[in-house]
Design a protein around this nucleic acid. Sequence first.
DNA 1: ATAATAAACACATTATATTGTGTATTTAAG
DNA 2: CTTAAATACACAATATAATGTGTTTATTAT
Lengths: 151, 151
Amino acid sequence: MKCPFCGYEESKVIDSRPTDEGERIRRRRECISCQKRFTTYEIIESVPVIVVKKDKSREVFDRSKLFNGMLRACEKRPVSLEKIETAVNEIEATLQNSFDREVTSVHIGELAMDKLKDLDEVAYVRFASVYRQFKDINTFMDELAKLLSEK
Amino acid sequence: MKCPFCGYEESKVIDSRPTDEGERIRRRRECISCQKRFTTYEIIESVPVIVVKKDKSREVFDRSKLFNGMLRACEKRPVSLEKIETAVNEIEATLQNSFDREVTSVHIGELAMDKLKDLDEVAYVRFASVYRQFKDINTFMDELAKLLSEK
DNA sequence: ATAATAAACACATTATATTGTGTATTTAAG
DNA sequence: CTTAAATACACAATATAATGTGTTTATTAT
């Protein structure tokens, strides 16, 4: 590993300890060239889940959006909140455990539909028909208008 | 290192490569217990940078705040997560390499705007408008008009 | 569409990191 | 101000990671 002080490309480990109950490894390194010491951490690759929509735009996965979408689909249907919550938990876990950094909105929609299919057929059909989103420059203009009016 | 899947506390390295010109080490690990694989990165400990805000109050530089601000600006825009991440990395590196332990929030905002200008004009205008809090509304509208006419 | 780049995978050989034990020092908390 | 926790440091014995080479797949750019 490159030395942060002199930029030399080799350093050796002089101490190595697990931290945070094994979640990380802290290493103390020493530069081969300048002998200066520094600390490093080995961490598990962070996987922020990003949703890629049909128009290729991206946004952070929002659990509550998914929850609300599924809840709307289940309106006046015999599906308990607990069941929806469980379904959302399972979908979220699926996204976290997949090592894809980006997931398509279509894929999430499919996961949601799979769950709804098992929960309630009517809710499933509703969701399937509503799961469409179009965003363009007009959305942007709306946001701007809102910001301007606040001023 | 603890397995992110089953939580078992031992895993072994099956591949190890330097990345980013030796700035990091990427390792591919396999859980001793469940055999599932995951990726880790060894990175140099970040030296805390202090941000001086407009009201002269100070706080530790929070990378994720900058990331989120830029991500918000890019919301529903065709800017990949990787590009934002790269921009944030470069800004963070700039801050780390500056000799000053303290940086103004204004300076960070300018660095972010410079990056966004190259990534996406709409994102840039959004960020700039929020960041400058509409001090010069006409300049802002001019930029917007320019963007719309290009469409 | 395709070329270039990066990540994932495999495997063998060499070299280096890990771990226990112990002390000292710094940092955070009461 | 004192104590607990985390970090830094040292060293020796053992186990594991690093590296070269090469193939495959996935991602990004042209």
